[in-house]
Write a protein that binds this DNA or RNA. Structure first.
Lengths: 335, 335
DNA sequence: TAGCTACCCACAAACGTTTGTGGGTAGCTG
DNA sequence: CAGCTACCCACAAACGTTTGTGGGTAGCTA
């Protein structure tokens, strides 16, 4: 910047203001500065700017993991929206571990991020590590997995609706004893999916049966184990809706190993629309989560919060509509 | 820091040196400083430190994408090793696009990263956007997809060996006309995999046949299209080795749709050991890439380079050994 | 012409660290 | 006791921006 100033015979103030399009700089001067900056290949030091301003153009993201389809896609949406707004994204994984999540938040604060976007780890049940973020006045947005019973800004899928659609679809295909593979109920998404399942049953006048609901961490192994248990019931099920695709995959693999026909004997539906749902045989019906939109929405929310830094806190929530992808694992039950 | 200094009646110099464990500060003083820092909940401003030092504790990573298994796992390895060394990781995706790759590098430089780890985009054929990194004296490490014909530091898999093993395995199972689905040959990994394939054939005294080698971008669709072409050959193939799992998946899907038995009629092997290789039926034989080790090795290399900032440049390359995972798609060809 | 507005610009102080330089003290050696 | 080493510490200048304050000039109005 000093070079630019010397070259043009103006002060660094003018350079800085010209570059940031300040109103008190003449259009002609701005042009000259910009042109010379290009010519000299001037690279702004964002660090210095961040230091002076007390805030960087970095956006911190904490997710449980980045395998599978969901989180990478959300991050993709975040990156796109962020870069449009001139922000860079720094991604951390909590590996489903509160302790790591806590450390990640620290790291991000130390990097002076302008905002923090979080999807909670599985075992996060208290939220004090986010207090610092708020107390520093840094916008905080949760997405997908959000804190229970807290006043927060968040972007979520209408999980209830997704589960409702999936379960209703199974019922419409003729299923009458539909089981549910449920996730940990302290996590909002799994709680809502379970409720959607129950409400779909109710809409069909079917009484819920706790024996048909299996609670687990929703891994492939959990899904297989649950399916094994369900098969042992005196009154066998004819449909399974899982709150996650890994679990329904496990169930499917077990059924196939037992020679049980899908969907003729048992119809299956999952949640997340993972890539592999289109690979299995039969292909798996699943609820799509609008991953990229979720990322974009989270960034939009962040930008709004950042635009009004000292506005009184008002909880905001964006709710996205899921979409059911129907595939062969649940189709043509009734010939 | 000023608070700490005032409280303890020493200068900020002492505080700074005590916190960074400088040798000219007494152990007693260090203890006092550390204790008070804890008590006052002192949060260092890494930005300021980075500004002063001209370097942050951030490690920049550029990858083509983060879907699938490979890159997330590598990143996982990077994060682990980096956090052990006190670095945070900032991940950017180039989406297989040189232009974005260029911009990502700019962004990272602006963030004053301490090092840059890169896996090239598919269409990156010139490398001038990395000159700035070097000229600033910032360690630059390539992994997996590295520049051709350049003096660089890199971590790669022994792709040749992996391909050799996979192809040899197919031949050992009784295959005699093994086709190869090859990727773009300007990319090191695909070139080496093709060469491994050829060398395995040679070892079995089989003459290579260019008609059996298909070049494409290795998508699922590409794999299916290639398989369709191969089936139309007068002299049909009895084995296919693909340089990527997506392609071999496409091939598999096409074969199944034609009612061709795997592995009895045609045996299949892929590369990457993607998650879905254990889901397909039959499960897919594939070469595992030691993803996490690759990430760790890249960080190790970075740390070595960072430790000797002004050492004369000496090209370094770490080569990891692949591992063949044999599954049903290639087994028991000879009863 | 005095007074006002609208622009345009420079000075200099921040932002929170790190670090080269140099000064001081204690203990030891010869 | 002089001289040396080994510690210990403070001063102050950086690092590259942003921004509040205030000064200057031109053009217009009354």
């Amino acid at each position: 910047m000093a070079d630019l100033a010397r070259e043009l015979g103006v002060s660094m103030t003018t350079i800085s203001r010209a570059l940031s399009d300040h109103h008190s700089i003449g259009a002609a001067t701005k042009q000259r500065v910009l042109k010379l900056a290009k010519k000299l290949n001037y690279q702004p030091n964002h660090l210095a700017a961040a230091l002076r301003r007390g805030q960087s153009r970095l956006l911190g993201v904490v997710v449980p993991y980045i395998e599978g389809k969901f989180f990478p896609s959300v991050i993709q949406g975040i990156e796109q929206a962020a870069s449009k707004a001139g922000f860079s994204v720094i991604v951390c994984q909590s590996h489903e571990n509160v302790e790591l999540e806590r450390r990640n938040v620290e790291t991000l604060l130390n990097a002076q991020v302008a905002g923090v976007l979080v999807s909670l780890a599985r075992n996060t049940q208290e939220f004090h590590h986010f207090d610092k973020v708020r107390s520093r006045g840094i916008p905080l947005v949760f997405f997908d997995r959000i804190p229970a019973g807290e006043q927060v800004n968040s972007v979520v899928l209408n999980d209830h609706e997704g589960a409702l659609q999936a379960t209703r679809h199974l019922l419409e295909q003729g299923c009458r004893r539909v089981a549910h593979l449920a996730g940990p109920q302290h996590i909002n998404i799994y709680r809502h999916r379970r409720q959607g399942y129950l409400d779909a049953l109710a809409a069909f006048g079917i009484a819920p049966d706790e024996a048909l609901i299996d609670y687990s961490d929703m891994t492939t192994e959990d899904g297989a184990a649950a399916m094994r248990r369900l098969l042992a019931l005196p009154n066998p099920v004819d449909g399974v809706f899982a709150a996650g695709d890994s679990a329904i995959l496990g169930a499917m693999q077990l059924l196939k190993s037992k020679g049980i026909s899908i969907p003729r004997d048992i119809a299956l539906a999952g949640f997340s629309n993972e890539g592999f749902t289109a690979i299995t045989e039969p292909r798996l019906t699943s609820v799509d989560q609008r991953c990229e939109e979720m990322g974009e929405a989270a960034v939009r929310l962040f930008l709004e919060l950042a635009a009004a830094p000292h506005a009184p806190f008002a909880q905001r929530q964006v709710v996205l509509q899921p979409e059911l992808f129907v595939r062969e694992s649940s189709l043509q039950r009734q010939p």
